[in-house]
Amino acid sequence: MFPPAFEYSAPTSVEEVLATLAAEGDGARVLAGGQSLIPMMKLRLASPAYLVDINNVSGLDYIEDVNGHVAIGALARHRDIVNSDVIASTNHAMASAAPWVADPIVRNRGTLCGSVAHCDPEGDWNSVMLAARAQVVAQSSTGERVIPIDDFIVDFFTNSLQPGEIVKEVRVPKYSGSGGGAYLKLERKIGDYATVAVASQIELDGDGKIAKAGIALTAVNNKNTRASAAEDALVGETPSDELFREAGDLASQAANPETNVRGTADWKREVVRVYTRRGLETALAQAQG
């Protein structure tokens, strides 16, 4: 398998990257980890005229605890998330998802920001970002804007970046109180995309009631989807088995999966139901931990 021809440059600063993107226009794409883009090029499903490789830009591989949120730079690899003490101590759903993204070698190269930008509905990170209510920092030669993840994810493989913009950073809010989360992924084998996955996150208030809830679903819609009704049902309530079952039921109603080689739609909705409940049980135990 051989990719089609393209022009290439590997600038060493963000400014140069943005200037090149602006100059090359629509045919240009950013190359970060490349673990989705390059296979698509080899299968000739993508044929960008110009690749702007950002791997030589220094200082973009950070995972930092900044006031109130964790900032993840454009070149932080999945492996960096797996190994990050900052992530381990601030966000359970991310820590739980990271080891199940792709396979160990792909994680050495692929980036979180690249996955977020890719908007593959079977991808893992955007569900976790939805549950955590993350923000995407988009930068272009004319400035920077901060996009809530809900607005960033537009559709099947479609984000809300404007021409000339790159995902420079993703910001994940930290728990304001005690919190917990989980990412439960049904995959067929290591390296597989999710057949179904559920990201869940809760924060408790001082009375032990649920102050914030995030639930998002992978691979059961045309994009990673927030299960809003399930979240709403949780907020303000005291956690219980019954409540979590109800959340599971509501989450499954937010799923609109296809029947395909991985399984039937009915079964996928059932997995959403079960995984939501189980994820919330894990999240609660952590929050109460």
Binding site: D103, R188, K189, I190, G191, D192, Y193, V261
Partner: peptide
């Protein structure tokens, strides 16, 4: 090999 699934050491 994304759909024709050869097991890894893990499974």
């Amino acid at each position: 090999f994304m759909d024709y699934l050869v097991p890894t050491a893990w499974e």
